[in-house]
Every structure is written in C-alpha cells, then in structure tokens.
Design a protein around this nucleic acid. Structure first.
Lengths: 350, 350
DNA sequence: TCAAAATAAGCACACGTGTGCATATAGATC
DNA sequence: GATCTATATGCACACGTGTGCTTATTTTGA
C-alpha cells in the first residue's frame, strides 16, 4: 500500500480507465464522468430532490457505466444509523435456537437491516465476543444466549446500543425483554401427567446456568408441589439428543423407573424416546409418557409424534421485531417486557 | 481505581446510561475530559504509538468513565475495510445449509469479521436481496444459495466485492468456487447398490434449478449408465422430510416398487425411510435400501442410522475460510476452485 | 557543550455521503 | 417592469477515526 503511494503520489490524477477496477466507484467519479457536481449525483439517488430530469438520467447512465451505488455505510455515518443489528444466538447446533435466529434474520432482511450473527455451534457465546462487536455502532443488539452476564448488557447500554433480551427477563436499565412463560408451560405438562394418573414423574433439564432452564425446572418443581407429588428423577443433560439419550440410559435402567418424564426441550425428549423404544423396547406412552418443550419440526415427524409444549417461534420473532421497531421510534422509552404464552400440543407420547 | 464515581454504581443513583448524552462517546469527548488532544486519544488505543505512559493511563481512565470504545466503522472508513462479510445462505430450514452457515458464522467471528446473514426459512434468497446488501462496502460475499444468477455475481465483482461461491462452480471473473464432487458421491452410492445386487434402483432429487441437484442427478444417471442399469424411478421433491415422505407415498405404492432408492439429500431420505417403515411396514434395508446425501446429524441417530454420502461441513467451511483469507491477502489473484471429496458412510439402511 | 537522535504531541487531511444554506435562473402574478 | 415563487444547483460542513507531516521536547553520544 505504501509502495502504491510512492508510485502514484497523486491518486486523484490517476488514469481512471486504467485502475478503475481497484476501488469502488464514488459519487465523485460519477460526477466527473457526467460533468456535474458531486452534490447532483447525491441528489440523483435521493427521492424527491430537486434535479432536472435531463441531469438525473445523465447521472444514472454514468452511474450504470461505472457500476456505482451510494455507499450506505458512508451515508449512515451522518444519520448515526448503521443499520447493523447484532444477534447473539444460543447454541446454533440446537434446532430451536437455530430456527429462531433464522426467522429473525429473515425478518431483519425485510426491514433493510443487516443482521450480524454472533454464535457458536459448540457452546454458548462468551461475553468477550459480545464486547468485540460493540466496537461497531450497532442500531440494536438482540441477545438470545442465556449465558451473557448482566454486567455485559450494562456495557452495551453505556454505548447507547438498545438491547433486547430474548429468552430471559433482565431488570437492567431500559432493556426490552421477551420470554416464554416457562412456568405456565411446565404447569401444563405436569397437569397432563396428573390427569392421566401418572405417579412416578421425573424431570430432565439442561444447563443449569441458562435462565430458561432455571425457570423450567422451578416451574416443574412448583407444579409437582402443588399436587403433593415428589419427583422420582431430577436429572440434567445438555439440551441435546445425545445428552437425552445418555441420561435415559441411566434413569430408565434404575430399579424404580419413572413412568412419565418431562424434558427441558424437545431434543432431549427425542433422545429419551429413542432410547426407551429402540434400546429398551419400552412402550411409549404405555410404559413411559414423554413430554418435551419447544415443538421443533422433528416433534411432528410421524416416527416421533412427540407431545410437547410449544414455544412459538413466530410469536417470539414478531415480539422481538415489534420491540425493535418501537425502540427505533423512541430510543428513550422505558423498557418493556413481553411474555409469550406457551401451548400444550398433545400428540402420541403422553 | 482513581475514578471514584464509576466504581460504585449505586442503582438508585444517577444512571450513566440514561443521561450520558444520547450519543456514543467519541475520541473528542475523551480528549476533553482527559485534557489532551484527540490525536492522543487515538494513539492511546493504538499499539506501539508514541505516547507517554502517564498520558496513556490518564486517557484510558477517562475512556473507562465515559464508556468509550473507538468506532470500528469510522476507523475502517479510511482503510477501506468494513470487516463486513455477507453470507447468502441456502434455505435455513434445511439442517445441512443451516449448519454450514452456523459454522461459517462461528469461524468469521473468530477472524474478527462481522458475518451478515442473508437468508430465508421458506425458499431461496432472491437476487434483489443480494443487490441490496451491495449498498454496503463488503469485504467479501459468500454465496451458498444455488439460485443466485451469474449476472448478479458479475454486479458484485463490478463493485470490487470479492465473491466466493460455495456449492456450485461458476466461471465468471475472478470468482472463487468450492463444491462437493457430487458426481463422485453418486457414483459411490450406485456402486454400493450394485455391489449388493440391487437391480431396481430409483432416484429422488430436489429442486431442479439448484446446481447441486443438477450435478447429483447427472451423476446418478452416469453411474447407472456405466453399469447398463435403467432407473426404475426418477422423482423430484423439495429437499425436505415432508417432500421425501410424500414422494415415497407415490413411488413405494406403485406396482413395480424399487428395491433401492438414492436420495438427493438426507432430509428426503429420512422421509422415505419413515414412510417405508412406519406406514408401509417395509423392511429397510431388506425390502428397500436407502442412501442419502450430506450426513446430517440426524442420520447418525440410532433410530435412523442412515447410510449416506458425507458432504463434509468442516472441510467446506475450512475451504471457504482459506479462500477468503488468501483473497484478502491478494485481492487481484486469479479465482481458485476447490473440490470437496465426499465419503461413503455405511450404516444400516443399505 | 553541542549536535544528533529519540521521543512526544498536535495540526490537518482523507475516507464518502447527505443536507442546510446561499445563490441563480425561469416563470408567473400584480 | 417589478416582485414573488418554484425550481435548480453548488459550496461547505458534519460524521469519527487513523496517520503523515511538522514541531517541540528530552535523551543520547562524543
């Protein structure tokens, strides 16, 4: 780069037809070709600006020749809007988290925002990665990873970046929150087990540091207590199919096997279902009733047909988008909290 | 340590993020507080710049108080690097495409790039959405959607945006390409069917406009011809589980049922498997052998244990990243093409 | 003690765009 | 003809940063 400057000390006088391929064309280039001022070029791409038709077409032709498009980043530089919206995802190896992210990405695309995804396929995103993206002037930050610390969220707010936390309720600053009513969901599931007379009910949860898990396990315990029932199993896995499979290998081969198991998400429920049917040859739901959480696409597959608590993706993404839009409209408004209502989806495993 | 008001954040006291002046702190603000020039602030955050230790610590303290971080977008404005890398994904409802995108996102995060995802969960991304993101000065554009036109790719190149096409070979400009050797993969699968003496072999493909599908169906036809075999079934679906399930409902209930079916991807193969076993009660692989393509995670689940052709995600993402890095190092180099070698994964459905 | 070298710090520019303000031209109204 | 309005165009600034160039200060070397 320095050698380039030495060879060509006056870049503005460089032959544009020789090295025009080196850099993106600017409004200045178009102005030179079209024989107008740079301002006119800017106006040619601004709806409703005063510009004679003749000039406008001349400029647009020149722009077409040079392959010019206004640099949106430079434009947003003034208006203090980058259109960048960062999404800190949960584990992208998880079907549910992955699909929520995908839907949100699609919606943001439609809104003319650039969704910048921060995520992992192995574990959850660390706080340092969140801080790194804050070097950029984000229009907003959507946090779905349940592991991000409240302290990190405060740093975002200090940088004047609106934060929306999804999947957990956070009481920091003007943060918008959105979360499934996990407790209500677990209550529904336990009620179903109780209705069909299941007595030996167990629970298989996920990572205890994730707030969704904390709410769900607490909801399960509360629902059991309400009915004077004692959990037969309180196990933990990692929210994955393999984790559920491995956990089932333990608690389904114990002496006092549960006859109903409530899982913290569908992936683990499918792991349990698979081990119970294929490996142990159990009858589901005869010997063992299973209820999951989320209602991922796989739960609907005929080979599984898993009863579950739906954590509706469309309502979640709708909520996030509406929070975003109202935040853009009024950056100083108080933080809102939206609770998403879960729904029991009866299928054939309970 | 010297800042007495920030080290004691009392929640009931004045919250700095509320009244901190509506805008992100700039180097100018820090300079004013620290009593130095703006240049000094810039140097305080530049490794190896001449700056006395005393000033450096003073500036960093002031920055800490104001919650200042250098605006990476403004900085990149000069160096002509935005660190934005757009990823045009395939259908994000597809497990394979979704996971490739996720892995790529994770890798780009590690490289300090901002992955901007353009994608849908219903169909494939349209060309207009690709053109929209070109308003931004991208460091690179990774195209995985098989539906993007070559003409659109040319427009990217005119804007000096390096393009990497994954999943298809494109012979336009200095474009880097990366694609699984689909033909070799199909040859492996047909060879397996032939080895075990299957005679009535069928094929279930996906959207015919996707180039991956074109290569795979052509590969299948070529492999059959080579062995003087005539396909019993040539069907199409939409690369989804439901599509495979519905297609199986047709060709598995015909009079001359195939005894081996090769599918364009794993999702459809699982749909076929499910219909064959659950609905028709067929023995797989006794009555019907099934081989898929991709080797998604589900294929490994014990309840499926699907034989398939692995389209390795790690090698694919490694390849994309290496193409990206060498392109950053030498923007003018000729386009490269990388072929990813598939691998037959024998499991229990063939 | 003096020159040369090393360090420290600031001014001013470049990056690409939109837009407020001022100015110029043409047409219309009185 | 004079005044007013609508249209048309350009100048200059702001946005936030890194850095080349210049100048001031300190340290080193003989």
């Amino acid at each position: 780069m320095s050698s380039e400057n030495e060879l060509n000390p006056n870049p503005t006088c460089a032959k544009p037809w020789v090295d025009a391929g080196r850099k993106r064309a600017t409004a200045e280039d178009v102005a030179r070709i079209a024989g107008v001022s740079r301002t006119a070029v800017s106006r040619a791409f601004t709806e409703g600006a005063y510009l004679s038709l003749e000039k406008r077409t001349r400029i647009r032709n020149a722009a077409e020749i040079l392959g010019y498009r206004p640099n949106a980043l430079a434009a947003g530089f003034n208006s203090n809007r980058s259109n960048l919206v960062a999404i800190v995802t949960g584990n992208l190896n998880n079907h549910y988290d992955s699909l929520v992210t995908a839907e949100l990405v699609a919606r943001l695309n439609g809104l003319g925002k650039l969704p910048v995804v921060i995520g992992r396929t192995t574990d959850n995103v660390g706080d340092s990665e969140v801080l790194e993206v804050l070097d950029y002037p984000l229009d907003a930050l959507v946090i779905r990873a349940g592991s991000v610390k409240a302290e990190t969220v405060e740093k975002c707010l200090r940088l004047q970046v609106p934060v929306i936390v999804s999947g957990r309720i956070l009481t920091v600053g003007n943060v918008d929150c959105l979360c499934c009513d996990n407790q209500a969901g677990m209550e529904m599931a336990v009620a179903e087990f109780a209705r069909s007379g299941r007595q030996r009910i167990g629970y298989l949860g996920g990572h205890p540091e994730l707030s969704a898990e904390q709410e769900r396990s607490a909801g399960f315990v509360a629902a059991m207590k309400k009915r004077h029932l004692e959990p037969v199993v309180m196990e933990r896995a990692d929210f994955s199919f393999e984790g559920g499979y491995a956990a089932a290998a333990k608690f389904l081969q114990a002496l006092d096997r549960p006859n109903a198991i409530l899982c913290g998400n569908d992936a683990m429920a499918l792991g349990v279902l698979n081990f119970a049917r294929e490996t142990l040859g159990l009858d589901v739901p005869g010997d063992l009733a299973i209820i999951g959480f989320d209602d991922i696409e796989l739960a609907r597959w005929p080979c599984f047909d898993l009863s579950t608590i739906r954590n509706p993706i469309d309502a979640t993404v709708d909520g996030i988008v509406s929070l975003l839009e109202s935040r853009f409209a009024d950056p100083a408004r108080h933080g809102k909290t939206i609770r998403i209502a879960p729904e029991f989806i009866p299928r054939s495993t309970h």
